[in-house]
C-alpha cells in the first residue's frame, strides 16, 4: 500500500508527466484554450493511460521479456496503444452516447500523445506487478488532468487579460506553462520523505 501511494504521488506530482518530464505537451498547449474541452480531453487521456499502462505491462512481461524481444518494445507498445484507443472509442460509442459526445472527438488524438507511450516505456523494469502499472498509469493521468485543467483555467483568464501585443497567444501560454513547471519543481521536496 505504501509503495502504491509512493508510485501514485511520484507519477502525479513529483515527476508530473507534463511539467517535470515534459511529455504530452502538445495537447496541453493545443487544446487548453477552453475549460470544458480541457476537461473532456484530460478525462479521455486518463482513461486511455490507465488501460494502456496495464496492457503494455502485460505485453512486456508476458511476451517481450520472456522471448528476449526488448527491441520490439516501442513498436509493440504503439500497436497496443492504438488498439486501446480504438477499442475505447467503440465501446464508448455503443454504451454511452453522452460520454461519447463529450470525449469522442479527443480519443483519436490520444494515440499520438507521447505521455501515453512515455508511461508504457517508463513502466518497463520499474513496475513489479500489474497493479503497480495500473496505479502508475492512473496517477500519471490524474497528474495530466491537474495540469491540463488548471492551465486551461489560467488561459481562460489570460484571454480576458491585457497582455502586451507581442506576448498574446502562444508566447504568453508558454510563459505560463514554464511558471507552472517551476511551481511543480517544488514537489521535488516530497520525494525526500
Amino acid at each position: 500500500m505504501g509503495d502504491l501511494l509512493l508510485i501514485a504521488t511520484g507519477a502525479a506530482l513529483v515527476n508530473n508527466f507534463v511539467l517535470v518530464r515534459f511529455l504530452g505537451l502538445c495537447p496541453v498547449l493545443g487544446a487548453s484554450s477552453r475549460l470544458d474541452n480541457a476537461l473532456g480531453l484530460s478525462l479521455a487521456t486518463t482513461l486511455v493511460l490507465t488501460l494502456s499502462s496495464g496492457l503494455t505491462w502485460i505485453l512486456d512481461y508476458w511476451l517481450l521479456i520472456p522471448l528476449d524481444l526488448g527491441y520490439l518494445r516501442i513498436l509493440g507498445f504503439i500497436l497496443v496503444i492504438a488498439g486501446t484507443v480504438q477499442a475505447t472509442e467503440l465501446v464508448l460509442r455503443h454504451s454511452s452516447t453522452i460520454l461519447h459526445q463529450r470525449l469522442g472527438v479527443y480519443l483519436p488524438l490520444i494515440t499520438s500523445n507521447c505521455a501515453v507511450l512515455g508511461v508504457a516505456l517508463i513502466n518497463t523494469g520499474r513496475m513489479s506487478s500489474l497493479v503497480e502499472a495500473l496505479v502508475f498509469g492512473l496517477a500519471a493521468g490524474l497528474g495530466f488532468c491537474l495540469v491540463m485543467i488548471s492551465f486551461s483555467g489560467l488561459r481562460e483568464r489570460l484571454a480576458a487579460a491585457d497582455v502586451p501585443l507581442h506576448f498574446r497567444g502562444v508566447p504568453i501560454a508558454l510563459v505560463t506553462a514554464s511558471l507552472m513547471s517551476l511551481a511543480f519543481l517544488g514537489f521535488a521536496g516530497l520525494s525526500q520523505s
Binding site: L72, G76, L79, V80, G83, L90
Partner: peptide, 16 residues
Amino acid sequence: GLLVLVGLSAVLGVLL
C-alpha cells in the same frame, strides 16, 4: 519477433 508483431496485430484487428 515477426510472429509476435503479426500475432499482436491480428489479435487487435479481430478484437476491434
